[in-house]
Amino acid sequence: MKIRDFMITDVISVTESTTIKELLKILVANKIGGVPVVGDNGDLIGVISDGDVIRYVKPQGRTVYDMFSLVLVAEQEDFQDKLTYCLDFQVSKIMRTKDIITVNESQRLEEALNIFSKHRIKKIPVIDENKKLIGVVSRGDILRYVYNQIINKTP
C-alpha cells in the first residue's frame, strides 16, 4: 500500500505572509490543527500548527532579576494583550522551517506509520522530487483507510 492511495491532495496551506489571525480563521473553519506553508511556486517551505501558535501567544510569567541587590520585576503579560499584539504578525515569524519530516507518494504505508510513531506528529506533508507540496497524510487518514479497506472492506 502506497501513500498515494490514502493521502489528501486537496491540501489547505498558507503562505509565509499569512497573518496569525488569518491562520487561526483557517484552522478553526476547517477544524484542522496545522497546515503546510508554501512558497509562490507551491514548494514546501515550512509548517505551522496550533501548538506553535499556542506556544507563541502564551503569556510570559513573572520574572525576578537580582542584579547586585537591585531587584527588577517583570510582571506577567496578559493573554488577551499578547494575543491582540501578535494577531497581525506573519506566520513566517513562528513557522517551523527546520527538520520538517516529509514523505513522497510512492513510499509505503508502513513508512508513514513509523514516522507517526517515532516522531509523534499529526500530519506529514507529501512532496514531489522538486519539493513541491502535492498532498498531506494525517494519522486520521491512515485510520480511516485501514478501517474502510481492511476492517469494513468498502472502497
Score class of each variant (00 low, 15 high):
I54L: 15
K25S: 10
V35C: 04
P125K: 08
E111A: 12
V73S: 08
K98P: 03
S49C: 05
R96T: 14
V38R: 05
L72H: 12
L109N: 01
T102D: 03
I100A: 05
P59R: 09
V137I: 09
H119Y: 13
L72M: 11
V28C: 08
C86I: 10
I100N: 03
V73M: 08
K98W: 03
Q76M: 12
L27N: 02
E110R: 10
N104E: 14
C86P: 00
P36R: 03
G46T: 12
I115R: 00
P59Y: 07
I115E: 03
V136C: 00
N41H: 09
G135L: 09
V37K: 08
V47T: 15
D78Y: 01
L70E: 11
N114H: 13
G39F: 04
R55Y: 05
L70A: 07
I94N: 02
K31A: 15
I134F: 05
S117A: 10
V28W: 07
D81Q: 12
V38C: 12
F68S: 11
M67T: 12
I115Y: 11
K98R: 12
G46R: 00
V73F: 04
I115F: 08
D81S: 09
E110M: 14
R62G: 03
Y85Q: 15
L27M: 11
G33L: 09
I48S: 03
T97H: 03
L44Q: 00
C86R: 14
N114P: 01
L109A: 02
D88R: 11
I124T: 03
I45T: 11
D88P: 04
E105D: 15
S92Q: 09
I48Q: 04
I100H: 00
F89Q: 14
L133W: 03
N30S: 12
T84Y: 13
Y65E: 15
T63N: 09
I101N: 01
S69G: 08
A112H: 07
D78G: 00
I124H: 06
I32V: 14
G61W: 00
A112M: 08
L23H: 05
L72Q: 10
S69V: 11
D99W: 06
K58N: 11
I115S: 01
G51T: 13
G61A: 14
L27G: 05
N130V: 08
V47C: 03
H119M: 07
V37P: 10
V71K: 15
N104W: 02
I54N: 09
S92Y: 02
G46E: 10
R120C: 04
G33Q: 10
P125Q: 08
T19N: 05
L87P: 06
E129Q: 13
I121Q: 07
V57N: 01
